[in-house]
């Protein structure tokens, strides 16, 4: 298995775990507004939301810089996976916009807590979509050309 393919599997697992954790938190707390009510928890979460993408970006960059880890075939697959990632992010933002507009149209305002939730969900979707795109790319190459 190619190093990039391995990394995509790890990212996919991380994305699924993050989704599970997020859903579990929301189910336990019961309400989005209660989830971010604690000030300390809010600051910890801010650090996590900035830290996780930063660490992820650094790890990807380190992988891409190693010539023995990645070559033109892998780069071609990464480029193609970017399309899946972009589409997933756009569709998830569209889904959030439609859902929040329909739910809060009468009140004419959306709770600020949703901003963090939108950011987290888009980050997770982005990680999942890129991993899925990379794995699909390898599957297609291994199937036929």
């Amino acid at each position: 298995m190619a190093p990039l393919q391995k990394r995509a599997w790890y990212s996919l697992i991380i994305g699924i775990v993050l989704t599970g954790v997020l859903v579990a938190f929301l189910v336990i707390k019961g309400d989005v507004t209660a989830f971010f009510a604690d000030e300390n928890m809010r600051y910890i979460l801010y650090a996590v939301w900035i830290g996780v993408p930063l660490i992820y970006w650094i790890l990807v960059d380190i992988t891409l810089r190693k010539p023995t880890q990645i070559d033109e075939r892998d780069k071609h697959i990464i480029e193609k996976s970017g399309k899946a990632q972009w589409m997933a992010v756009v569709f998830s933002l569209a889904a959030w916009t439609i859902a929040l507009t329909e739910v809060y149209r009468e009140q004419r305002q959306v709770p600020v807590d949703f901003l963090t939730l939108i950011l987290v969900s888009v980050l997770i979707i982005s990680i999942l979509a890129q991993s899925f795109g990379i794995l699909t790319g390898y599957w297609r190459i291994n199937r036929d050309v």
Binding site: M1, A2, P3, Q5, P67, T68, Q69, I70, D71, E72, R73, D74, I141, N142, D144, V145
Partner: peptide, 25 residues
């Protein structure tokens, strides 16, 4: 793979006819 600067997986894919290399490679 080491001589030409690519991964072993790419050499495997090339030998199996599952990947067409760039002109440079």
């Amino acid at each position: 793979a080491s001589r030409v600067g690519c991964t072993r997986q790419t050499i495997i894919a090339l030998e199996q006819g599952k990947y067409v290399p760039s002109i440079e490679l």
